[in-house]
Amino acid sequence: MRYMMLIYSQENETATPEQMSAIFAAHRAVLDETQHRGILRAADPLEASATATIVRVQEGEVLVTDGPFAETKEQLAGYYILDCEDLDEALAWAAKIPTGCAGAAGCVEVRPIRQMPTRVPVNG
């Protein structure tokens, strides 16, 4: 079963170069290990939430506005998609994903991917 891990962290926090490389190393470790086990389906980092754009269609008119969708204390910073046996395995991986500098706030939301009768647009 595939799970999406949404990484939320505070983008305004200032990290030292040492902390940054520790975060990179932690991601690298998760990526390497999940790839090695053949369960890594996707992972991407995102640009800051200030670069987000919202698209809505109202009465046939396309409305483009500045994003993000919601102002939150922590911001979506990236995601993983992992193919896990069950939720417990997914939660265990989620705990290994770094969410910010050492000790700083952050969290990972774990959501199962919906199985579509036919794979809807394309699969990931």
Binding site: E47, A48, A50, T51, A52, T53, D66
Partner: peptide, 10 residues
């Protein structure tokens, strides 16, 4: 700065 960064990054 934010606007210019957005132009570049998005």
């Amino acid at each position: 700065v934010r606007a210019q960064r957005k132009i570049q990054q998005a």
